[in-house]
């Protein structure tokens, strides 16, 4: 038996319309039946940002850093994290919740995590819009560096997709993965420098914290929206990120391809 991971990519390209329409379905099915629909999609991140801003800005009296309003700095860091955590949590159930499709129709199951990832981008888009609104509200500088966030979005997508393939396929055989991922994401939110500054830590701890590839993206979002630093200013970290991401991506494809033939037997 041979598996060609590349065939994953060609399938995704060939079935991109299906991916798009299924992702759209997933987004709309989240809000189908609720009277306010899209309002909830905006309300949720808005409330989340407000709560964190309130706790840290008012409660703990965290002062603005380098003249950057804390709320913008916080939101810019939260945006990629929540997209990542969202996709991870959705991905674990990507395959098991489509058992009917896999067992009874000829369906390329490798696109299921892709669909979840794409549908996760919708709420991310709203989150980023809120960040931009905050920047406008605070009358902060506007720059072409904003577009650099697209590069980091790409980074986010590849990192999330590789892990999605792994988790989505493993969950089929080990349902516990779902809960494990949920807990890791909870812990990850606190352990990743999102609402606290990495510079608070000593040099060694900083190095350890930077091993988390998600931090590369969080830092990147802040550099794109606030500090206007190009990504090639830290080439080693960029290389490290892509090294890890490529490994996770290829590993995810390998695991998924290895387990895919057994899906119909188990689902």
């Amino acid at each position: 038996m041979k598996y060609y991971p590349l065939s994953f990519l060609t399938t995704i390209l060939e079935r991109r319309k299906l991916v798009y329409s299924m992702a759209r379905r997933e987004v709309s099915s989240k809000y189908v039946g609720s009277a306010f629909g899209i309002v909830w999609a905006v309300a949720q991140p808005l409330v989340m940002i407000s709560v964190f801003w309130f706790i840290f800005s008012i409660g703990f009296r965290v002062s603005p850093r380098n003249d950057v309003p804390f709320v913008v700095w916080l939101a810019a860091g939260m945006a990629p994290w929540f997209a990542f955590a969202d996709i991870m949590n959705l991905a674990t159930s990507a395959v098991i919740s489509n058992g009917n499709l896999i067992k009874k129709t000829f369906f390329p199951s490798e696109i299921l995590p892709v669909i979840r990832a794409v549908s996760g981008l919708f709420s991310h888009l709203i989150f980023v819009t809120i960040v931009l609104c905050l920047i406008g509200l605070m009358q902060m500088e506007i720059s072409f560096y904003f577009f650099q966030s697209l590069y980091y979005l790409c980074c986010l997508f590849f990192l999330a997709l590789g892990l999605s393939w792994t988790f989505a396929s493993l969950t089929v055989f080990l349902r516990d993965i779902r809960h494990m991922v949920a807990i890791v994401m909870q812990v990850g939110f606190w352990a990743t420098p999102i609402f606290w500054d990495i510079n608070m830590m000593s040099g060694t701890v900083q190095k350890i914290l930077k091993l988390n590839p998600v931090y590369y993206i969080i830092q990147g979002y802040r550099e794109s929206f606030i500090y206007f630093t190009p990504f090639w200013h830290h080439p080693v970290y960029t290389l490290y990120f892509w090294g890890v991401t490529s490994l996770l991506f290829l590993g995810g494809m390998f695991v998924f391809a290895r387990l895919k033939p057994q899906f119909p037997d188990v689902l």
Binding site: R25, S29, V32, G33, N100, K103, T105, F107
Partner: peptide
């Protein structure tokens, strides 16, 4: 084109 089971590939909400 296969009809293997009733409503396979149908989403009941739609």
């Amino acid at each position: 084109s296969a009809l293997l089971e009733l409503g396979a590939g149908f989403n009941p909400e739609y």
